[in-house]
Simulated assay, not measured.
Amino acid sequence: MNKITTRLQGGCHCGAVRFSAVHQRHNDEPLVAHACNCSMCEKVGYLHLIIPAANFQLEQGEGDLSCYTFNSGVAKHYFCRHCGVKPFYIPRSNPDGYSLNVRCLDSVPPELEVEPFDGQNWEQNAAGLAHLSVAK
């Protein structure tokens, strides 16, 4: 089975934080981002593209990031301390990966599909995301 590799770049609004990433999938799988309706994501319009941690590289701005945690403290929400934008974070559902904010990508892949995710009922649904941070 062939793999499709999508190279991604993005960052925060002011440009202090920049990242690069690679998303890999089998050629029969769509490129999917998730629109979560939890209390955090719905308020900020975050669109999740989850990748394995090994496929993420912070290019610049480590010192410009602030981290916010809540509830279980597992998720690490990283914000630019200058402009307040959250370009990526380490999700509770995938602590071995990163969730990239599709809205912070320099260029959104045209084949990207957005699917809803019921984060309001996170405990019942989170296991459905666990496979996304496993290297293909």
Rank of each mutant, 00 (worst) to 15 (best):
G84N: 06
N37C: 02
G73R: 11
A127K: 09
I51N: 00
F19L: 08
D118H: 02
D118V: 01
C104L: 11
L112K: 06
G11D: 03
I90D: 01
N27Q: 09
G128D: 10
T6N: 09
A135R: 08
E62H: 10
S20N: 06
K43G: 01
Y46T: 00
N2D: 14
L105P: 11
T6I: 15
A53G: 05
F88C: 06
H26S: 09
S133N: 10
G84D: 08
N27C: 09
L129E: 00
F79G: 08
F117L: 11
K43F: 02
I51C: 01
G84A: 07
N55H: 14
G45L: 01
L65E: 10
C83A: 06
Q60R: 12
L65N: 07
L100N: 03
T6G: 05
N71F: 11
H77D: 03
R25P: 06
F79E: 11
Q9G: 05
K3V: 15
V17L: 12
H23V: 15
A127P: 02
F56S: 03
V134F: 05
T69G: 04
V74S: 02
T5H: 07
E113S: 05
S66V: 14
D96S: 12
F70Q: 05
A35K: 11
N125H: 13
L100A: 05
H13C: 12
I90F: 01
C38D: 03
L58F: 07
Q24Y: 04
L47C: 01
V44P: 00
Q9K: 13
H131I: 00
K76D: 09
I50S: 00
V22R: 12
F19G: 03
G11M: 08
H77V: 09
E59H: 02
E111F: 08
Y98W: 12
Q9I: 13
K136I: 15
Y98P: 03
T5V: 15
D106W: 07
K43T: 02
A33I: 12
G10L: 07
A135M: 12
L105I: 15
C80T: 14
Y78L: 15
V102W: 02
N94Y: 00
N37F: 00
C36A: 09
C104K: 07
C104R: 07
G63N: 13
R92Y: 01
A53Q: 11
P30T: 09
Q9E: 14
K86N: 15
E113R: 10
H34M: 08
N101M: 09
A16S: 10
A35L: 12
Y68M: 04
N37S: 06
V85K: 03
C67E: 12
L58T: 09
K3G: 03
N27Y: 04
A53Y: 07
T69H: 05
G119C: 05
P87I: 14
L129H: 01
G10I: 14
D28A: 04
Y89W: 14
L132G: 01
G15I: 15
H34E: 08
G15V: 15
L49A: 00
V102M: 06
G61I: 10
E42R: 10
L132Q: 06
D28P: 03
K43A: 13
E62S: 11
D28S: 05
Y78M: 15
L58W: 05
L65I: 14
